[in-house]
Computed example of a mutant assay.
Amino acid sequence: MKFRLHPILVPFFLVLMVTGGLAFYALVFISLLFHEAGHIFAAKLSGMKVRSCTIMPYGGELRIPDRYAYGKRQRVSVAIGGPAATAILLLLSMLFDFPGDEQFMRIQLVILALNLLPILPLDGGQAVSVLLEKEEKKYKMRSAFLIYSITVLVAVILLLLLGLPETVLFVALALFLLIQNISAFKFRKYEQAYEQLKRKQLTS
């Protein structure tokens, strides 16, 4: 399995280092790694093969070949694996005292709350999207959920702009998520064609 950091993390972490210091930067990075480890662990338990893992500002992204060929339970398990790992860190920070525990607790709360939002490509959105799927209308449902996510993110960005400069990191993150969703929407038909081709190959 390949492991890499998304280039967007460079300016994101530079801002964190300037505004919060190296200790804060280290806590955020460790928290993101642990969050993604939860996804990987859930994927392994579900029998899914992970080709690569990319750390993002909000968590990460797993590249799982033929992801949609797996069952709903497996895909939902992978989606909630990250938030479950973050929830464990949050619980540990509440039960045990250690230097910087309040800051560490706030980081886990932000990562957990962010990833549970029901919008793509966040974990909450991934889980809801899978649960809403119906075999006969799954492609239309995926497209509709992408449109919903894009609409919500545009509204969120407009609201966050009112709070600048304090909300600059959240604006940047929302823009990044918006771009990801627009890209996914543009390539949805290619993904659908590929998925149907793979299904034909497996059944022929």
Results as ranks from 00 to 15, higher is better:
S52C: 05
A42T: 09
K137M: 04
A26F: 12
F170R: 04
P7M: 10
L178P: 06
P99S: 09
V154R: 05
E61V: 05
P7D: 07
E102R: 07
M48P: 02
E195W: 05
A87F: 14
G81K: 13
R63M: 03
L89M: 13
L161H: 03
L175H: 00
L114Y: 01
L112V: 03
Y70W: 01
M141S: 09
I88S: 07
L91V: 13
G125N: 08
S183E: 11
G100R: 09
S149K: 04
V130A: 03
P83M: 10
L169T: 08
L95Y: 06
V18P: 00
F104V: 00
Q196F: 13
V110F: 15
V28E: 09
A87G: 12
G71M: 02
F170E: 08
I150A: 11
Q180L: 14
F96G: 07
S143Q: 03
F24H: 14
L5A: 06
A127I: 01
Q201K: 14
D101L: 09
G124Y: 02
M94E: 10
N115F: 00
L169S: 08
F12I: 04
R67Y: 05
L5T: 04
M48C: 04
P7S: 07
P99M: 13
I8D: 10
L160C: 03
L27W: 14
V28N: 09
E166D: 07
E191K: 09
G38M: 04
L89W: 09
R188I: 15
L173E: 10
R4N: 12
E135I: 02
P11M: 10
L162A: 15
Y58T: 11
S31M: 11
L178I: 05
T151N: 03
L112Q: 02
K134T: 06
F41R: 15
L169K: 10
L161W: 07
K2P: 01
L146P: 02
P83V: 11
F96T: 08
L131S: 01
G125T: 06
T86L: 05
M94A: 08
S46Q: 14
V110Q: 14
L90S: 09
G163A: 11
G81R: 13
L32C: 05
Y25T: 15
K198M: 11
G82P: 14
L16N: 08
I107S: 00
E36H: 11
G47I: 06
L117F: 03
F104K: 03
F176Y: 13
K44G: 04
V18Y: 12
L92V: 06
G100V: 06
F12D: 06
L116W: 03
V171N: 13
E61N: 06
A87S: 13
S31A: 14
M94P: 00
T151S: 15
I119L: 15
F185H: 04
R106S: 02
I55P: 10
F145N: 00
Y25N: 14
L197V: 00
P165R: 03
S46A: 15
I150T: 06
L92Y: 07
L45A: 13
P7I: 05
K198I: 00
I80V: 12
N115L: 02
Q74L: 00
L27T: 08
L132W: 07
Y25C: 15
A184K: 15
L159G: 01
E102C: 01
L161E: 09
D66L: 06
L175V: 00
Y68W: 10
D101E: 12
G20R: 15
N181E: 07
L164A: 05
